[in-house]
């Protein structure tokens, strides 16, 4: 089983061989020596990889697409995208790039009321620029662009209530 993984600006191909027990693992074609044990639903993994020890929790990101994971190591939370061949196929058919192009979408980080839409389709925006203001928990929250890019579509209107993770802006 081959997985393509994208984590921040890095990409890996992780191969897991199901025919051996425990499964043999390769990263970018190079075998790595691993020992692991898991707890409960496999989300807590104690991993020994080339004798380095990691205490890891893997969580599927709720409300996001398949393949989006949060991985907790050393107190840090990493957002990463991992897909097997089946997911890759679906993605290719949909004509999307690796990583599910999650950064080409802006989702609502919390439920709230859209009080202002600051940009329109076709606008060029840079990373950190405010796009939409959502009022939640009596606070105004500026939702900023995570990328430099051009807005393709804005899916919400001023005065509209949005659920958590609702798709708000699509980039080209």
């Amino acid at each position: 089983m081959d997985y393509q993984v994208k984590i921040e600006d890095r990409e890996y191909i992780v191969t897991i061989d199901p025919s051996t027990h425990p499964p043999q693992i390769k990263v970018d074609g190079v075998p790595v020596e691993t020992k692991f044990s898991t707890r409960s639903d496999n989300s807590e993994i104690q991993l020994l990889m080339d004798n380095r020890s990691y205490d890891i929790e893997v969580v599927k990101q709720k409300g996001r697409q398949n393949g989006d994971f949060s991985v907790f190591i050393y107190g840090r939370e990493f957002s990463l995208y991992a897909e097997d061949e089946r997911l890759a196929k679906i993605r290719e058919v949909a004509g999307l790039g690796l990583g599910g192009d999650t950064r080409k979408e802006l989702h609502a980080p919390m439920p709230g009321l859209v009080t202002k839409v600051l940009k329109s389709p076709g606008d060029q925006v840079s990373r950190g620029e405010s796009l939409i203001i959502v009022e939640a928990m009596k606070m105004e929250n500026e939702l900023k662009s995570l990328i430099d890019g051009t807005i393709k579509e804005i899916k919400v209107k001023e005065g509209q209530s949005v659920d958590k993770n609702a798709l708000m802006v699509l980039f080209e």
Binding site: M1, Y3, V5, I7, E8, R10, Y12, V14, I16, P18, P23, I25, V27, V32, T34, F36, T38, D41, N42, S43, I45, L47, M49, D50, R52, Y54, I56, V58, F69, V71, I73, Y74, R76, F78, L80, A82, D84
Partner: peptide, 23 residues
């Protein structure tokens, strides 16, 4: 973080997915 941390994160996410699917 150092390279190996990213690698471990990648491997663990795949392991999780693989184990859950085989279950």
């Amino acid at each position: 973080e150092e390279d190996h941390v990213y690698k471990a994160a990648a491997v663990s996410a795949c392991l999780y997915d693989f184990l859950e699917n085989s279950k």
